[in-house]
């Protein structure tokens, strides 16, 4: 069942051209919970001096993952769109490492879904970035 959900979620993500282009994969899906990964790619470098990925690519991963959390929420029907999203960049992502985003849709109303997410790499438990935002429902 869990594998089936991941497959459905991955097919959905593959249907989003920009997410597919950035190589995003679904790790797990729960009710209002979504975990995604984005592999390191030299194309996404924002600071050539250090090889650190551009914040924009991390933002795209967090935004996609938050959208996934909204769609996987049991009370949600149909598609969603971002109303607003704030990302705090805590530390540079370690060059060469995959970035993992974990998003939670913690409140769902008739019109708005509230989501937060955290991005980590494998170097430390300290987050690379955190996001919080509001999404359209229904």
């Amino acid at each position: 069942m869990a594998h089936q959900n991941i497959k459905i979620a991955q097919d959905f993500v593959d249907g989003i051209p920009h997410s597919k282009a950035l190589g995003m994969t679904v790790v797990s899906v729960g009710e209002g919970e979504f975990v995604m990964e984005m592999p390191y790619n030299p194309d996404y470098i924002g600071d050539p001096a250090t090889g650190v990925i551009h914040g924009g690519a991390v933002f795209a991963l967090l935004d996609s993952c938050c959208g996934g959390a909204v769609i996987s929420h049991p009370e949600h029907k149909g598609v969603t769109a971002t109303i607003d999203l704030r990302v705090d960049y805590m530390r540079p992502a370690t060059p060469g490492q995959t970035i993992r985003a974990t998003a939670t849709c913690y409140n769902m109303t008739r019109t708005v879904a509230f989501v937060r997410a955290v991005a980590t790499d494998s170097r430390s438990d300290k987050p690379v970035a955190m996001a919080s935002g509001a999404f359209v429902t229904g």
Binding site: I16, P17, H18, S19, A21, A57, F59, D63
Partner: peptide, 24 residues
């Protein structure tokens, strides 16, 4: 570009692509 799309049915730009563009 086609690979900047986030919703292929509308179609609309991906929020992440928009954010990245603005941050750049």
């Amino acid at each position: 570009r086609d690979d900047l799309v986030g919703n292929p049915f509308l179609p609309a730009l991906h929020g992440g692509a928009t954010a990245a563009f603005l941050e750049v």
